[in-house]
Nucleic acid binder design. Structure first.
Length: 191
DNA sequence: GACCAGATTGTCT
DNA sequence: GACAATCTGGTCA
């Protein structure tokens, strides 16, 4: 079952935790790729300087100001893309970065896109999973509650299996506890 | 395993 | 003109 738009119109920290264990799907002409979400990060609008929207709306971050359930895909470091899901209502720029997936289906496709044979190396990082799933910048702003790129409900993760830590790879507001991952998963980006 | 440098370009100051 | 929500491949152990 596809997660409804209402799922995303809640507190972003709550949504980031609730997304763990859900099923991320992308259907393309090449085939279908499916992964279970095992790691996320929240980006808030209040007192979070790491958020791309911390200094207001620009061309780049416009998707984050859109409706909940929209995809926010951005280009970074001259060669990589990262995928987020927009949370909260229109006008509130918050989102959840999907940092890692456990590959479930379409593994052959992921291997050929990533040029890596180790299953754990296919989706254990935000730019890696974008590559493995075949996501492109043209899907920025698209809707994950319908269409070929979508998130369906999986098995809920018990609260005690959710680990909360600080975020990765950022300078500003890096001490905020906004990164979440599934305990003992071999598919997360790093401990 | 840990640590480090390099790749490469859109976006904002 | 500086920098970025990253990854890879190198070295050393």
């Amino acid at each position: 079952m596809i997660l409804p738009r209402d799922f995303y119109n809640h507190d972003t920290v709550f949504v980031a935790q609730a997304l763990l264990g859900q099923i991320f799907i992308h259907e393309t002409d090449e085939g279908i790729a499916i992964g279970r979400i095992v790691e996320t990060e929240a980006y808030l609008s209040e007192s979070d300087l790491a958020n791309h929207a911390a200094r207001g709306q620009t061309m780049r971050n416009a998707a984050m100001f859109g409706e909940p359930g929209a995809a926010y895909i951005y280009f970074i470091y001259g060669m990589y893309y990262c995928f987020n899901v927009v949370t909260r209502d229109e006008g509130v720029a918050e989102a959840v970065l999907i940092r890692a997936l456990e590959p479930l289906d379409g593994i052959d496709l992921m291997v050929s896109r990533r040029q890596k044979n180790d299953i754990r190396q296919l989706c254990n990082g935000p730019a890696k999973l974008v590559q493995a799933m075949g996501i492109t910048r043209s899907q920025n702003g698209s809707d994950v509650t319908s269409g070929p790129l979508r998130i369906e409900s999986g098995i809920p993760i018990p609260q005690e299996d959710i680990i909360t830590t600080t975020r990765v790879g950022i300078n500003l507001s890096h001490d905020l506890p906004l990164r979440f991952y599934i305990k003992d998963s071999p598919y997360i980006s790093k401990k």
